[in-house]
Amino acid sequence: MEAIESTYLYHHGGYVLVAAVAILTILGTMLVAHLLVKVMYRTLKKTTGGVVGGSIVANIIRVVIWFVSISCILKWCFNYNTSVLWGALGVGGIALSLGLQNTISNLIGGLQVSLSRDFKMGDWISIRDITGKIDDITWRVVKMEDADGNSYIIPNAVFNSNAVTVLPPFQTTDLTFEISSMADLEAIGEKLPQLAYDALKKAGYLYEDMKPELSLDSASLNAINATLEVYTEYTYETIDIRECVMSAVLAYLKSNNALATYTE
């Protein structure tokens, strides 16, 4: 109580003024933290084309603002010498840095990942033997989820010492088969991509309306090697994509006596 009663606020308004200032400071801190985090996300989204920072930058902003706010409350409401607190923070920071090297390494790695723009949340990446979509970037780890729904928690420091492959937002599946050399190639070139497109769209596998592409690779005396390239989300299995597309394609080729062989 003596600490409170020795403050400037107490002498000019008693406990009511001290409590009011403390409450208003807390409320103001909550508002400022919310606004700054919101501005940060909007700025990153505008400058990078997507939400880059994850939660790590937001958490750092909150910690700094709250630390300053608590320092102000201690000074204004309890007449506490905050220079001691800041000095202790510096000394304690040195001690903590020695004991928390891995944590600090992960923090620095998280900042580099967040601000480097090499990849962002929602991207599909491959690191070591893990391939998945980035769900969040925190102060300590990057959270990923693979096509099977498995979750991975990877320390940020791993990204500083390992190669990262940023994948396209869709997976490509090549479906190979042989067309009879007597077939009408012009008609097949128009029909097969459309059949594959319709089948994928009906099944819900199609990625952003990307139309499949047909390529004729090489030819023998009686057959022409063909590859149908289709584009889908990573969450779909190759076997399901193959079954979805090839049932319609093979039916068309057989009905027109244009199928030579099909590679499973």
Score class of each variant (00 low, 15 high):
residue 204 G to W: 03
residue 243 E to D: 12
residue 170 F to C: 14
residue 66 W to K: 10
residue 164 V to H: 02
residue 135 D to K: 08
residue 42 R to T: 15
residue 79 N to R: 03
residue 213 E to F: 05
residue 203 A to L: 06
residue 166 V to L: 07
residue 93 G to Y: 15
residue 40 M to W: 11
residue 155 P to C: 08
residue 169 P to M: 14
residue 41 Y to A: 10
residue 205 Y to V: 01
residue 36 L to N: 11
residue 209 D to R: 01
residue 216 L to I: 05
residue 237 E to A: 13
residue 173 T to Q: 11
residue 128 R to Y: 09
residue 211 K to S: 09
residue 134 I to D: 03
residue 32 V to G: 05
residue 248 A to N: 06
residue 157 A to G: 02
residue 70 I to E: 09
residue 170 F to V: 15
residue 157 A to Y: 00
residue 10 Y to V: 06
residue 79 N to T: 06
residue 34 H to S: 11
residue 52 V to I: 15
residue 108 I to V: 14
residue 213 E to N: 06
residue 160 N to C: 07
residue 45 K to W: 09
residue 254 K to R: 09
residue 49 G to W: 03
residue 161 S to H: 11
residue 64 V to W: 01
residue 110 G to V: 00
residue 163 A to E: 15
residue 148 D to A: 11
residue 155 P to L: 01
residue 186 E to A: 12
residue 215 S to D: 15
residue 33 A to S: 09
residue 63 V to L: 07
residue 193 P to T: 13
residue 142 V to R: 00
residue 71 S to G: 07
residue 215 S to W: 00
residue 146 D to C: 10
residue 150 N to P: 04
residue 20 A to R: 08
residue 148 D to K: 05
residue 67 F to P: 04
residue 148 D to N: 09
residue 195 L to I: 13
residue 56 I to Q: 13
residue 204 G to H: 03
residue 187 A to P: 01
residue 132 G to Q: 07
residue 54 G to R: 02
residue 88 A to C: 08
residue 144 M to Y: 09
residue 166 V to W: 01
residue 93 G to N: 03
residue 148 D to H: 09
residue 4 I to R: 02
residue 177 F to T: 04
residue 112 Q to E: 14
residue 118 D to A: 06
residue 235 T to L: 07
residue 124 W to N: 10
residue 18 V to M: 08
residue 45 K to I: 15
residue 170 F to L: 14
residue 187 A to I: 12
residue 72 C to F: 14
residue 30 M to K: 04
residue 137 I to N: 02
residue 4 I to L: 07
residue 84 V to F: 11
residue 246 M to L: 10
residue 145 E to A: 07
residue 59 N to K: 03
residue 77 C to Q: 01
residue 203 A to M: 05
residue 209 D to Q: 03
residue 7 T to G: 12
residue 258 A to T: 11
residue 214 L to H: 14
residue 24 L to N: 06
residue 126 S to Y: 02
residue 41 Y to E: 13
residue 224 I to Y: 00
residue 231 Y to G: 13
residue 192 L to D: 00
residue 91 V to S: 02
residue 63 V to T: 14
